[in-house]
Design a protein around this nucleic acid. Structure first.
Lengths: 207, 207
DNA sequence: GCCCGGACAGAACGCGTGTTCGGTGGGAGG
DNA sequence: CCTCCCACCGAACACGCGTTCTGTCCGGGC
């Protein structure tokens, strides 16, 4: 085994365990076994369970952000950028389901200095989405409204970006179109709550 | 203390602990203390930690579903029903944030017979949403597509239905309008991926 | 040939956990 | 006044956990 070549398999094994059993229920012994090491051998490479979670999250977010930058680099229109984000996210959901699960569920289990660092990286991902929506926005929405919209979009992606909705790369691609169309129409067309047509959105829903 | 009156405070204490620390990290001792009982005293009322999680989930889902039925009962149009679902969900998110968190994060930690029961209840909630969307759908979408759309909608709601997005009942109300408008426009207007206007959603995003 | 450091492994430690067991007090029924 | 039962508690048990200590092996520099 080449030097340092253990890290990828350790992080992969950890990601699988964390995703399947949850961070606190996953055991170091199980991760060590899956990585082909003894328990003490695992501790030769990492400082502790907390650091292991950090490394998994850090690598996953790096991959996600790198993928986004790459997609964004070739996108020319604001609409293209939005679709690039959606595709990147759904692609990541398909190729790294365990990592996405950990990002969404376990990121706040980290102890404090590391938690803040991951939160910052995570935030930069949201900011990227927010910037795209700002470019796209025909209504000059406030920053708060745009942040809400960004979380609406990311919520959609996380709501659908997991089994059994994505079973293939093609699913990810076609779902990207569906999500992009659905979100974009709503985002571009609506002019605000109060201005929505009454038959669609009266203040009361018992009409 | 009146007979049986301990249950509400036990379930509330458990919900708070589960939500804040996660199911496995929350301890029976902490829950007992928060409920004003000793550890053994807590076990006088419930059979174990697993049952406690089940009771919390069961009560929360009952509340959520009951609220939905109540809102749906006075809604007359399909659009009104959709908005009723959105409002109910966001209202629940505001009034019972701990319970919603547990529903979304910890429902799969249950052991098997109970897990299936909760999953069924949960599914009936999704089915409710799916039925509403079917009524609303102008495109005769397939069941799979409608299920995807339902999860898109619920994903949005869960993406935004948590701090810091909902800080008041009014926030929940106005966000309902925003979400309703955004989703409805997208859902009603788009006719399908392939049919979307090219300037919005070309098959490629590098145009 | 020697040794030295890095890559591991076996076994143990201490701790927190869910759960249980044997009690105890006090109010209701006779 | 006695008894029974129900709500409840203190203390303990067994277990799994993260972590660490003490090695052992082995390939490469001198």
């Amino acid at each position: 085994m080449a030097i340092e070549a253990r890290y990828p398999q350790i992080l992969t094994a950890a990601a699988q365990s964390f995703a399947r059993r949850g961070f606190h229920q996953a055991s170091m012994r199980e991760i060590a076994r899956a990585a082909g090491l003894s328990l003490a051998g695992l501790y030769h490479y990492i400082g502790g369970k907390d650091e292991l979670l950090f490394l998994v999250l850090d690598r996953a977010l790096d991959t996600l952000l790198a993928g986004l930058e790459e997609s964004l680099a070739v996108a020319r229109t604001p609409e293209g950028k939005l679709l690039a984000l959606i595709r990147t996210h759904l692609d990541f959901a398909f190729h790294h389901p365990a990592e996405l699960r950990i990002i969404n569920r376990d990121h706040e289990l980290l102890a404090e200095p590391r938690r803040a660092e991951i939160a910052a990286t995570r935030r930069s991902y949201v900011e990227r989405g927010l910037a795209i929506l700002r470019e796209l926005d025909p209504h000059e929405r406030s920053g708060d409204d745009l942040l809400s919209a960004t979380n609406l979009l990311l919520g959609m992606l996380n709501g659908i970006g997991r089994p059994p909705f994505i079973r293939s790369s093609d699913d990810a691609r076609s779902l990207s179109g569906t999500v992009g169309a659905l979100f974009l129409y709503g985002f571009l067309e609506r002019s605000g709550v109060g201005d929505a047509p009454a038959h669609v959105l009266g203040g009361r829903y018992d009409e």
